[in-house]
Amino acid sequence: MSVASTSKTKTAAQGEGGTSGRRGLPRGGRRREFTTRRGLQIAAFMAPAALFVAVFTYYPMVAGGQMAFRNWKLTDLTDTSWVGLKNFRDVFADPAWGTVLTNSAIWVVGSIVPQLVIGFALALWLRRRFRFRGLYQALIFFPWAISGFLIGILFRWMFNSEFGVVNDLLQKAGLIDEPIAWLADPKTAMVAVLIANIWYGVTFFAIMILAALQSIPDELYEAAALDGAGKARTLFQVTIPYIRTTLALTVLLRVIWIFNFPDLIFGMTGGGPNNETHIVTTWMIKITQQGDYGRASALGLLVVAALLVFAVFFLLATRERKRVTQ
């Protein structure tokens, strides 16, 4: 990115026309006169998207952000005065906050690690053609068509303590004697939501990693084989280093996304039992439903702050990738 951006500033400074500078088309001195027209073109093409996102996404977001510093309760709209950091203090003072934070960490790490490992294995094994590979890929793609909320419901039914199929299968296999009340105990409930999220998220990793694997030139493997490298060494010294940046990007994108993904837990446990499976974003839903928009906004800003840190990592990773390829 650093290389690209220097050439970009140069292009802008010279006022070159559109794509021509980058592609080196011999248009010469005519470029300068087109600058205004080019600016108008860019503006006209961007305008509809910018308008929609500004009005229906950014305006409410900014308006919502400032609620974090106000006393903004649906129960009493006569007093929406500024209260400084009170909402943030309320967030931290809440006795449930510790559980919420711990759960968020468990939720992100406990989802990401298995998703990555299983997704990686799937990708490695899907690299070589076999019969029905196309069909196989289409089938394991299905979880992606379903909303997180509905996945929560599917698994809520399967983990049902009385009529759930999970208990039935475990009993048939002789692994448990008595049915487990999965969603009634915070520990097993957390395991259950993680299983549901792993079911959902592995595909994304498999797809991204498979695409990256297919970009590795065969010569690298041939060279490794000539050097007498075994399977494990080839994996750790050829494959993983080559796709490292894709791996990093995919993980960071997923961390942002999973952190911000209350839907599944909302559908599966609703944060229960006894508020023990809430993550930050489901907690935010609960507080919004209680009508305390101020405190919910404060939570939202905390999420944004945490995720901005990840965005920085994300951009650093992107930067490195561009430098490598140029």
């Binding site: 996404t57 305006y59 919502g64 919910a296 965005a311």
Partner: peptide, 23 residues
């Protein structure tokens, strides 16, 4: 602009729900 697009994916939509409803 690309960053602005990325940011929309990072912010929990619940922060915008109240003002969006009023709008």
């Amino acid at each position: 602009l690309l960053m602005a697009a990325l940011v929309t994916q990072m912010i929990p939509s619940f922060i915008a729900l109240g003002p969006l409803y009023l709008l």
